[in-house]
Design a protein around this nucleic acid. Structure first.
Lengths: 106, 106
DNA sequence: AGCCTTCATGTAGACAGACTACAGTAGATG
DNA sequence: CATCTACTGTAGTCTGTCTACATGAAGGCT
């Protein structure tokens, strides 16, 4: 799975997993790995900046907690995040249809 | 259609349209627009560098011709380009399955 | 005690692909 | 004669993902 392919889609993926339940960064990486059958293994240096970007955009809200001596910053979807996710799901469907149409031999 | 979404997929799209018949840059843009129902409108400043990149990578070969006073550089798929396209089609299927799986509500 | 692994967050800097904006030529149309 | 379409191309910017690094605590192993 090449890195460039993900470009522009990672945000949607993150919003989608956080939509099910609030998660902290490390757990988001594991959720993506699990949901993709191990095919998505996003490095921390990609996820943490993405989370800050999404929070700055108003799509996520975050709060600190401590569990067993571990500091966790847990993210949850804002209402704007819900709307963004809905839009991005539609955009993904449209995008994948277009690419599949061009790519499939006629 | 956001620009970043295309990132990493444009090469496959170009190879796919050139696979059907050799085309020059301008015609490639029109082919992509046509095949996508007008949704893909790639600017020349994106396509021409991409074509040079693909030729440098050995996936395309090019030759000049003149039709009605118009200079055209026509690109065709090399054998390496055929192999690359086949691989990239498979990668697209895998990628779109993964994204759809993560994105679809469970 | 010392060491490694896992859990957990984060920053700095490099890289590359798609973008905007510009630049130019030639034929066709009003 | 001006504008549009066809056609190719370059320069520079932008930004998201990457690698590599830095930090620290809990728990297991020897």
């Amino acid at each position: 799975m090449k890195a460039d392919a993900l470009r522009g889609h990672l945000d949607s993926l993150i919003l989608a997993v956080v939509d099910e339940q609030p998660l902290h960064g490390y757990a988001i990486i594991e959720a993506l790995r699990g949901r993709s059958g191990g095919q998505l293994d996003i490095p921390t240096g990609t996820v943490y900046p993405a989370l800050r970007r999404l929070e700055a955009a108003g799509y996520l809200t975050s709060g600190w907690s401590t569990t067993a001596g571990r500091r966790r910053r847990t993210y949850a979807l804002s209402s704007a995040g819900h709307r963004a996710l809905a839009t991005q799901r539609q955009e993904w469907v449209a995008f994948s249809k277009v690419v599949s149409a061009v790519l499939s031999p006629s």
